[in-house]
Nucleic acid binder design. Structure first.
Lengths: 271, 271
DNA sequence: CGTCAAATTGATCGACTTCAATGCTCGTGG
DNA sequence: CCACGAGCATTGAAGTCGATCAATTTGACG
């Protein structure tokens, strides 16, 4: 997610007109997919005969729609996506953001339909593996089965962390946790953990954190005020990781103890 | 989850002393597991030779701990569990509740350690499948691989729904959504969707919804006041499903439109 | 029957939502 | 090249909902 984009491709996040502008699938080797997902061993000589194609998705367009028939599961090879559900009144509940090396659409396997939509936040690319071939492919190419298991397991963990985000007491803490998560993922993928270029707009972040988008804005300002961050639009520089992490650890009172947790400004802050 | 328990086994939810009181594993047939998970075809003659054991977990004790080494993944055959993370100060963040036919611990596969703990809310039983055998077993017993895929996919969907719960504007709406989910799961498993016997305490619900436990209590009272529910401790009867579902559909304003949404029923309520 | 945890209810204060207005960025077209 | 518009972002003001502290009741279990 939020890869440092050279020429600042901006995400289109309106999502009210999710037209589907997708290039035709290019044939790709399974080995490419395995390499992307970090599998060491090769897949065998026949890898190329199995149906794994590559698809490009432009910024703002949907990879699949909520309720749509599950045709494939996807592995993100470039760019990033948001996954979300749309309420009757049009409100978008953002469930999460998915980046390179992560899996999309597996939650549709059990019911044959996508429980949520996915839309690209920037020009992106995915490998597509037809749903109907999941089981047979897994049997023929064990390495693929393994890769799928691992990716899905990781995704399961990530989804569990949503609760940590949204349950935090204050809006600042939620934002802090979000940024720490982001930073850790940046580091895991070998990039600078201190310089983030957000691929999503404030509104999407707000939805994901369960607050109003104005509150996200205010929280950014607050974190900047107590010298945790430097914020310029979608560029975020983490100035004080220690304090940010400390802040992100704040919890709702343990019910038995909960002393005076002065929100983390303290002495030198903003003055 | 929340199965109607004859003699009201109560959940121990303190969880501050998660002693591990677990019976030795009984050898069980893979066919039993497949039957539990709704797989029609049998597993083949050799099923019984593979290591799938059954374990009993008593109310309040942990099936596995946060950070613990992943020894197996589990399929719940009886009872229910809560999954949760514990903060440094002891606060328990409840990620979800897991019942019969659902999978536990798969999120540990990718990193070899459990990202969260699981504790039984009532006397429960699980099938345990050693983590190290997941891939090989899947290769030898395709039906098992298939069952696992489906169960994990379903769990992924369920985790995604956490956000819907916790992002709701008001506490009453969150509780309404929680109850509707519960009700639908009851119905899916062939039980009455109107009579719920909660296996978890208010505090766990509160944590799961991201509010204080007092607020959960007040929300129950409120829903009872506008004749949606009849509540008696952990027994909940849904009186007006239509209104409950309508309420659960309330969203944070779509930002472009959002007229006067008078909460649920009439305006006389404490206004 | 007495103890302890769970659950309910009340009162107060702070934080967040909401409404509203302005500034900023970027893409488009004159 | 610059002006303009559209969506994004920031900031302000006011009302409301929920967290927190606190007291009481109910229920479970020895």
């Amino acid at each position: 997610m939020n890869r440092p984009i050279p020429n600042s491709e901006q995400a289109v996040t309106g999502m009210t007109a999710p037209l589907r502008r997708v290039d035709a699938g290019d044939r790709t080797s399974i080995s490419d997919l395995l390499r992307l997902m970090g599998a060491e061993g090769d897949a065998g000589a026949d890898s190329d005969r199995y149906p794994v194609s590559s698809r490009q998705v432009q910024a703002g367009s949907a990879l699949f729609h909520e309720g749509g028939v599950a045709e494939a599961i996807y592995f993100v090879s470039m760019g990033s996506f948001k996954i979300f559900r749309t309420a009757e009144d049009g409100y978008e509940q953002v469930l999460g953001f998915v980046g390179r090396g992560e899996v999309l659409g597996f939650d549709a396997v059990w019911m044959g339909r996508h429980p949520m939509a996915a839309a690209a936040l920037e020009p992106s690319r995915v490998y597509a593996m037809p749903s109907k071939n999941i089981f047979t492919l897994g049997q023929y190419v064990p390495a693929l089965d393994r890769v799928l298991h691992l990716a899905v397991s990781r995704e399961l963990t990530r989804r569990g962390e949503i609760a940590d985000l949204m349950a935090a007491v204050s809006a600042e803490v939620r934002l802090a946790r979000f940024l720490v998560h982001l930073s850790e993922r940046m580091q895991a993928s070998g990039q600078s953990p201190k310089h983030l270029l957000l691929s999503m707009c404030r509104r999407d972040i707000a939805s994901h954190l369960g607050v109003a988008h104005e509150t996200v804005s205010r929280s950014f300002s607050a974190l900047a005020d107590w010298n945790c961050l430097r914020v310029s639009n979608r560029e975020v520089e983490i100035l004080d990781m220690a304090r940010l992490k400390a802040l992100s650890r704040s919890t709702r009172g343990s019910t038995d103890d909960m002393p005076g947790r002065t929100p983390p400004s303290h002495r030198n802050a903003r003055g």
